[in-house]
Nucleic acid binder design. Structure first.
Length: 258
DNA sequence: AAGGAACTCAACCGCCCCAGG
DNA sequence: TCCTGGGGCGGTTGAGTTCCT
């Protein structure tokens, strides 16, 4: 069979998602055959883990997440899959991309600043020891050196600027049923997406573990209520309650959960 | 407004590990 | 013990998008 490459079409996504929801995760080599996809097993696995898997939190990384990645990278190196285990909802590929596109430079800059400040310390040390010999010391006090250095340094959290320019988004798995009508539609197409009593994998088994922070709490709330909207919802931390209400579905609001 | 540079991100490639025959 | 196939992982690519001059 000729294997297709390149971007996945919505139709292919639907086939893969339907198959896994109905049959669960098994041997990836059989998935494309059974699901009627002209893809290889690896491609299907990648598409599922990086894009279709429920619980994926897409969009901009928060400062907290970036901090975790920076720390973990210092400890683990390029162990992206291990890092992803510490960041619920983030795939290893996403973390890797973010590192290469942004955090690597940020990390390098921080290292550079650290190295500069260390060299300034050494220079100052030498100057102060020289001043004990000569009556005149350095023209610049150590604190002045640091001021000069920090004037050229990037703001320590300039990621904030990026987040303000491009508001981070949480993308609730687009394909999840928006309402019962869609679930019904899915049933006619081979099986219900939300029927826990059905044989095979159940949606409850696919849900992410609950997190305590507000972001994930709201995520869980919407996810568990099976009301994932087919649009990107702005990162809730960036919105006022009124704006959040604007995005949330009526049934969620009526539940009084928010 | 246009064109090039820089960036983002989905996806592929190739290597490695491990289990089963 | 060797071979083979599946799965996981990290590196890399390339198309699309955004930014900058």
């Amino acid at each position: 069979m000729k294997c297709k490459k390149g971007l996945w079409s919505p139709n292919e996504d639907k086939k893969l998602r339907d198959y896994i929801v109905n049959h669960g995760l098994g041997c990836w080599s059989f998935v494309p055959i059974n699901a009627g996809l002209q893809r290889n097993g690896k491609s299907c696995r990648l598409r599922w883990t990086n894009y279709l898997r429920p619980g994926l939190k897409r969009g901009g990384f928060t400062k907290h997440e970036e901090q975790i990645i920076m720390t973990l990278h210092g400890m683990l190196g390029n162990k992206w899959s291990q890092m992803s285990r510490h960041l619920p909802g983030r795939s290893d590929n996403e973390i890797k991309n973010h590192w290469h596109s942004y955090l690597k430079k940020k990390s390098a800059k921080q290292e550079n600043i650290k190295a500069k400040s260390m060299s300034v310390d050494i220079v100052n040390e030498e100057l102060s020891s020289a001043s004990s010999i000569k009556s005149r010391g350095s023209s610049l006090e150590p604190s002045q050196h640091m001021e000069e250095l920090s004037a050229h340094a990037e703001p320590s959290d300039y990621s904030k600027e990026v987040h303000l320019k491009i508001p981070p988004k949480i993308l609730f798995s687009e394909w999840l049923p928006l309402n019962s009508d869609e679930s019904q539609e899915a049933t006619t197409d081979g099986g219900s997406l939300s029927d826990d009593t059905q044989e095979g994998i159940s949606m409850s088994n696919l849900q992410p573990s609950p997190e305590l922070d507000i972001e994930n709490s709201i995520y869980d709330l919407i996810f568990e209520d099976n009301m994932c909207p087919n649009f990107n919802i702005g990162d809730v931390r960036m919105y006022s309650c009124d704006e959040l209400y604007y995005y949330a579905s009526p049934s969620l609001l009526n539940s009084g959960s928010l």
